[in-house]
């Protein structure tokens, strides 16, 4: 099932028209992930429809470098007692946004646990974003920038600083994530197109590389392959 759905997401990209990506939002109770995602999809909420699922499930349509992208953002429950059910939420995800509160050391520890679990369950296929939220409260910061960034690098994730309150860093976060997910999808397509000769190893290579350079240079290297 998982494989089939992943293929479906990729096949959306195969047509060269629209990419459909699933992004899960993980984070402890009070880190502000709901505000974060609401900020991002704000426009949608101005004409407050009562029929929506509010902040639990949001969609956003984007146009990135001429390609259409449909984002489905899945919020998850932060409470410990729902953790056992995590896997059914994040299966088939293309990306994960792991949010912690920069003033709360504990919430950063939780993020580390999730990273471990995600890597274990989904391998390197998934694009990880570690997000330190509430930078407007920088004076109470308990997680150092260096620590967070070096940790992110060590696990092949990217690190972002945001403030939902001040609407800072959020747009960049999602745009960046989308680009990375597109690259991953394109790489997957290429592998499929070339047959199964180059297998997982090359796919993984792309994934690791895309940690460093930005979308455009990566795109250049893609076209040659």
């Amino acid at each position: 099932m998982a494989a089939a759905a992943a293929a479906a997401a990729a096949s959306g990209g195969h047509s060269g028209k629209t990419y459909s990506f699933k992004v899960v939002l993980l984070g402890e109770g009070c880190v502000g992930k709901t505000s974060l995602v609401l900020r991002y999809c704000e426009n949608k909420f101005n004409d407050k429809h009562i029929t929506t699922l509010q902040a639990s499930f949001l969609t956003k349509k984007l146009n990135i470098t001429g390609k259409r992208v449909n984002l489905a953002i899945w919020d998850t429950a932060g409470q410990e007692r729902f953790h056992a059910l995590g896997p059914i939420y994040y299966r088939d995800s293309n990306g994960a946004i792991l949010v912690y509160d920069v003033t709360d050391e504990d919430s950063f520890q939780k993020v580390k646990n999730w990273v471990k679990e995600l890597r274990k369950m989904l391998g390197n296929e998934i694009c990880l974003c570690i997000v330190g939220n509430k930078i407007d409260l920088d004076k109470d910061r308990h997680v150092s920038v260096e620590e967070a960034e070096s940790y992110a690098e060590s696990v092949g994730a990217r690190h972002y600083h945001t403030s939902a309150k001040l609407n800072k860093g959020i747009e960049e976060l999602f745009l960046d994530l989308c680009k990375r997910m597109m690259e991953t999808a394109q790489a997957e397509e290429r592998i499929k197109g070339n047959g199964s000769s180059q297998s997982a190893s090359s796919r993984r290579g792309v994934q690791i590389v895309d940690d460093e350079p930005q979308a455009t240079p990566a795109g250049g290297c893609c076209s040659s392959g």
Partner: peptide, 14 residues
Amino acid sequence: SPKTAAIGADDLLP
């Protein structure tokens, strides 16, 4: 204000 109060999964699941 409705923005900060909208329901996320933290509320939805319980």
